[in-house]
Lab assay of single mutants.
Amino acid sequence: MDTYKLILNGKTLKGETTTEAVDAATAEKVFKHYANEHGVHGHWTYDPETKTFTSTE
């Protein structure tokens, strides 16, 4: 398992979190669920070199 990072740049919520996942697709599902639960619906990007997802509203 690898550690993946999420950076949230929402209108009402900003911050970072991490998750352990078997691959990027699994981490993306976890992070999108997390963002949706916190009302963040933004544009998603992923940097495979740093294993970092960013959601920007």
Rank of each mutant, 00 (worst) to 15 (best):
Y4C: 05
S55Y: 10
K5I: 12
I7E: 04
Y4Q: 03
D2P: 07
A25V: 10
P48T: 07
Y34P: 01
E57W: 05
A24D: 04
K32N: 05
T50F: 05
T19I: 15
E49K: 10
T56I: 09
Y46F: 07
T45Q: 09
D2W: 10
E49Y: 10
E20I: 14
G42P: 05
P48S: 10
K29E: 10
E37A: 13
P48Q: 08
N9L: 13
T26C: 07
E20T: 12
F31M: 03
N36V: 13
H33I: 14
T56K: 06
D2C: 14
H43D: 15
T18H: 09
N9W: 12
L13C: 15
Y46P: 00
M1W: 13
T54Q: 06
T19M: 12
K29A: 12
D2N: 14
V22Y: 12
E49M: 11
G39S: 05
G10P: 03
H38N: 11
T56H: 07
H33N: 13
N9S: 08
F53T: 00
T52C: 03
T17W: 15
Y4K: 03
G10D: 03
A35C: 02
G39H: 06
S55G: 06
L8E: 02
W44P: 00
V22Q: 12
K14F: 10
N9A: 08
T26I: 06
E16V: 13
L6H: 02
T3K: 09
G10F: 14
A27N: 00
L13Q: 08
T17D: 02
L6Q: 02
G42R: 02
G15I: 15
T18R: 07
K5Q: 05
H41L: 11
K32A: 06
G10C: 10
V40R: 02
T3A: 05
Y34E: 02
A24K: 12
E57G: 05
K14L: 08
Y46M: 01
E28Q: 08
G42F: 06
D47M: 05
G39Q: 06
F31L: 08
W44G: 00
T18P: 01
P48E: 10
L8D: 01
E57V: 06
A25C: 13
D2Q: 14
L6C: 10
T3P: 03
T3W: 10
F31W: 00
T26L: 05
T45Y: 08
D23R: 01
G15R: 14
K32M: 11
G10R: 02
K11F: 13
H41M: 12
H33M: 13
E20Y: 11
T52G: 00
G42S: 05
A35W: 02
T12E: 10
F53V: 01
E57P: 05
Y4N: 04
V30Y: 15
L6N: 02
D2K: 14
T3N: 06
L6F: 08
L13Y: 15
F53C: 00
Y4F: 09
F53E: 00
E28N: 04
T54G: 02
Y4M: 03
E57H: 05
T3Q: 09
E28H: 10
M1Y: 12
A24W: 13
A35E: 06
A21D: 01
T18F: 13
E20P: 05
Y34G: 01
H33C: 10
E37T: 13
K14Q: 13
K51V: 01
W44F: 11
E28M: 12
L8I: 13
S55T: 15
T3R: 09
D23G: 03
E28V: 04
H41C: 12
A27H: 00
V40Q: 04
A24N: 03
T50Y: 06
T45A: 10
D23W: 01
Y34C: 06
A21C: 07
T19K: 02
T12N: 13
M1V: 11
T50C: 04
E37G: 06
T45C: 08
K32D: 03
T54Y: 13
T17N: 04
K32F: 08
T18A: 06
G15M: 15
D23T: 04
D47S: 07
K32C: 10
W44H: 01
E20L: 15
Y4E: 03
T12R: 10
A24F: 14
E20Q: 14
H41V: 13
V40I: 11
T17C: 15
D47Q: 06
D23Y: 01
D47Y: 06
G39W: 06
N36P: 02
T12D: 11
G10K: 02
K5P: 04
D47C: 09
T50Q: 06
A24M: 11
N9R: 10
T56R: 05
K29C: 10
L8Q: 01
A24V: 11
H38P: 01
G10M: 07
T56P: 03
G39R: 05
H41F: 15
I7W: 03
H33T: 13
T12V: 11
A25R: 10
E37Q: 12
E49G: 11
G39I: 04
E37D: 09
W44S: 01
E57N: 04
P48Y: 06
T3G: 03
Y46C: 00
F31R: 01
T12A: 10
E28K: 07
V30G: 03
K51H: 07
N9P: 02
L8F: 11
G39K: 07
A27I: 02
K14W: 11
A25K: 11
Y46A: 00
G15A: 14
V30M: 09
I7Q: 04
G42L: 15
F53W: 04
T26M: 11
L6S: 02
A27M: 02
A35V: 08
Y4W: 04
H38R: 13
V22M: 12
A24S: 07
D47F: 06
N9Y: 12
D2M: 12
D23C: 04
T12W: 14
G42Q: 03
D2S: 14
T54N: 05
G15F: 15
K5S: 05
T52Q: 03
T45I: 07
E57Y: 06
V22F: 11
G15K: 14
Y4H: 04
L8S: 02
V40E: 04
N36D: 12
V30L: 11
H43P: 06
K51E: 01
G42A: 05
E37V: 13
